[in-house]
Amino acid sequence: MRFEETPIPGAYRVWPEPLSDDRGFFARTHCVEEFAALGLVGAFAQSSVSFNARRGTVRGMHFSVAPHAETKLVRCTGGAIHDVLVDLRPDSASYLKSFAAALTQENRCALYIPVGVAHGFQALTDAAEVLYMIDRPYVAGSARGLRWNDPALDVTWPEPVTVIAERDLAYPDWTA
Score class of each variant (00 low, 15 high):
R136L: 10
A140I: 09
A140V: 14
T29N: 14
A93E: 08
E106M: 14
R147H: 11
A37H: 11
V139C: 07
R89N: 04
V117C: 02
A101G: 05
Q46L: 11
D21M: 11
H119E: 03
Y95F: 15
V84F: 02
D87I: 07
S94W: 06
C76R: 01
L146R: 07
T175K: 11
V161D: 00
R136K: 13
E106W: 14
D21R: 14
A11W: 00
N107V: 10
T71W: 06
D87R: 07
V161M: 06
L111R: 03
D135I: 04
R167F: 12
K97V: 05
V49I: 15
F99L: 05
T175Y: 09
A101R: 01
G116D: 00
T175S: 08
S50Q: 06
A102G: 13
R28P: 00
G78M: 12
R54C: 04
L111F: 05
V84A: 02
R147F: 08
V163T: 11
H30L: 12
N52K: 04
L111V: 08
G141H: 13
T162G: 10
R89A: 04
G78P: 00
G78E: 05
E70S: 04
Q46K: 14
A80S: 14
H30Q: 11
D135C: 09
W157Q: 04
F26P: 01
V86G: 02
V74L: 05
V74S: 01
P158R: 10
P160I: 07
I164T: 09
L85A: 02
T156P: 00
A102L: 12
D173S: 13
A110R: 06
G10E: 03
S142Y: 02
F25I: 12
W174F: 15
T175N: 08
E17L: 15
A93G: 06
L124C: 06
A27S: 15
W157M: 02
A165R: 10
D91A: 15
A100G: 12
D173R: 15
M1N: 07
R75N: 04
Q46S: 14
T162W: 08
A102K: 14
V49E: 09
L124M: 13
L111G: 01
Y138E: 02
L169Q: 13
